[in-house]
Amino acid sequence: MRENSRPIRVLGVGLEIAVPIALLALWALTSAGSTSFYFPPLLDIFRAFGDTWLFERVSTDVLPSLARLFTGYAIAVVAAVVIGVALGSSRTLGRMVDPVVQFLRAVPPPVLIPAGILVLGVGSGMKVALIAFVCFWPVLLNAIDGVASVDPALRETARSFQIPARERLFRVVLPSAAPQIFAGARVSLSLAVIMMVVSEMVASTNGIGYFVLQSQRTYAIAAMWSGIFLLAILGYVLNALFLLVERRVLRWHRGARAGAG
């Protein structure tokens, strides 16, 4: 654990807040008199942001986007952990499927959209399926590795105390693999946002991605920028929430590592 003195910590937090505000102020100042069609004054973008997202399009675009994002992401994480535990528990099985996994995850995700449209249509089902497919691989690979590398001493201890298989799974194997599973899930979360936007741009009638593209096509440039802003904020907030959960669940891991070091 880092032992920072209080004033230094306060300064750190202060800078974390001050720097983004200063940058925005700089942007607002330099763009204030802008007559460029493509780069409108920041205040215009803010105005468009207020008009669009507070809260007119929340139910028509933001909520559908978020619903697809979370459904796809949740399906991916659950499936990847379940399958990862199975594959990670058996070395032979893990070896057998490894080439297939490596091959499938090498497919660049956006290229699946045409196939997805063909098979699943242009509805939400296709988008959820694509998000789930993309998010599946990082979690799967990390879960396999995490489960396979559970310390044999921990397994043997559980075995010698005759801990039933179910308990071993939930209280020994999964917690031990959790740091790696979380690492994979974090990568997947940013992939989920990307896939959500891309799928909405190609084939959709609503969603944030659809809105950004539609604004650009109708020359509503400030609105387009406001959509980009919203996506950035969304990504930032999702990551922050993720870290919050991770920090709670893996508190022991940070402590144990600090203790060992």
Partner: peptide, 17 residues
């Protein structure tokens, strides 16, 4: 069931979570 083990490497046999 009647046996219990204490391993050499306590740091690896106790569950850190």
């Amino acid at each position: 069931e009647k046996m219990a083990l204490v391993f050499q490497d306590y740091s690896r046999s106790l569950y850190p979570w």
